[in-house]
Design a protein around this nucleic acid. Structure first.
Lengths: 213, 213
DNA sequence: CTTGACACTGAACACCTGATCACCATATAC
DNA sequence: GTATATGGTGATCAGGTGTTCAGTGTCAAG
């Protein structure tokens, strides 16, 4: 990718900031006004340069139809950058609110790209996200308000699972030792182990936790 | 919020899908063509209705300048489903490995969509992700191997920041009380407070933590 | 029956907007 | 010197684009 001049960086930056702030792309004359140009052709020249260098793309003759084709980074990059993998999921609701049963899966779609090696998150279009309520998993570093990414699959011993108990979905660790029947364990010393007698409905395995700070 | 007619829902849906697919808003005549209207005024009537009912907002007289002011949901969804926001970042490297200096930036771009209200993550092209090494932040629920999302900006009191100390990037909490000079505090009782004498280079503020399980 | 909301057709207008032509200036590379 | 890229001014043009006025028809509410 060819380098941009300082002026071209400014133009590209303004276009992107404008979109972010206004919600739509700027017109040529709005760019002109922002930089104080006396001619629209000053803008046209820069846009041609940006397009030629592959940073943007436009629909000829049509108003406010930009496309950013390359994300310019003016900072540095590391030698040990990670590979990323992308996966989609649904953000459903709070985990204690229960798994929506029989509800059409048309909710929000969350897309996450993450480094492939460490994320260990298998791409699964069926995965969804739940917001954690309660403190039953604090000892596992999962706190109230965190968002857990649930992949519907059978759990292995030690997995953190979303389980349906008494009609409510809760987050617990799944324990199955030897040939014994499995049980659920809260990662909080104040909570007891749960040995379900009748039914143990595992809705999925937690693959990742996301927390905003 | 007043209800929309079926036709108005279709119009609003098309506008949103068009933006998502094309990256810019449609013109009145593009909406007209999509629905097979013989007159642009058919579109104008619906846009007026959508604006009157508070679903959209527009800049009078200007091309392709929509704003979606209310997110219409035509499907059934969990009542506590979250809105999602999308942002890009770079996955750089381990946080203790130091901030890459003077290296070309062509690294991986990580895109995350997350619920907007709780994520508090401002879309920032310059954000990047770092893998946490060490246990200096365990009391804040940040453990070794976690990935923190860093936004380069000035920190507020109490923010968790990536700071450059002795040539290494470390994750600490930023404290600035009253008019005193700021210092860094590790969220681990075994670690001392850090009162930098010479320089305190803040590289960015941690917005979120992602942990694979 | 009348009113109003809804859903259009059809035509015309004004200007916002992208695009182009001519021209100038500076700096760098060959 | 002679290109080539950069960074502009100034004027002009064509068309995309938002907007408005006038009119038609349906349907439910009063």
């Amino acid at each position: 990718m060819k380098d941009l001049t300082l002026r071209q960086q400014e133009i590209l930056g303004f276009i992107q900031v404008y979109l972010k702030e206004q919600g739509y792309w700027p017109s040529i004359r709005e760019i002109q006004d922002h930089f104080g140009f006396k001619s629209t052709n000053a803008v046209m020249g820069h846009l041609r340069a940006l397009e030629k260098k592959g940073y943007i793309s436009r629909i000829p003759g049509q108003a406010r139809t930009f496309r950013i084709t390359y994300q310019h980074e003016d900072d540095q990059k590391p030698e040990d950058a990670m590979d990323v993998v992308e996966f989609d999921m649904e953000v459903l609701g709070q985990i204690a609110a229960g798994y929506p049963d029989g509800v059409e899966t048309t909710g929000e779609i969350t897309r996450i790209q993450m480094d492939e090696a460490t994320a260990k998150i298998h791409r699964s279009r069926r995965s969804f996200a739940l917001k954690v309520r309660g403190d039953s998993m604090v000892d596992a570093g999962i706190y109230e308000g965190d968002i857990v990414i649930i992949e519907p699959r059978l759990p292995n011993n030690g997995d953190i699972v979303a389980a349906l108990i008494d009609g409510e979905t809760t987050l617990k660790r799944f324990i199955q030792e030897g040939g014994n029947s499995p049980y659920l364990k809260a990662e909080n010393s104040r909570y007891p182990e749960l040995h379900p007698v009748a039914e143990l409905v595992i809705q999925g395995v937690a693959n990742a936790v996301v927390r905003s700070l």
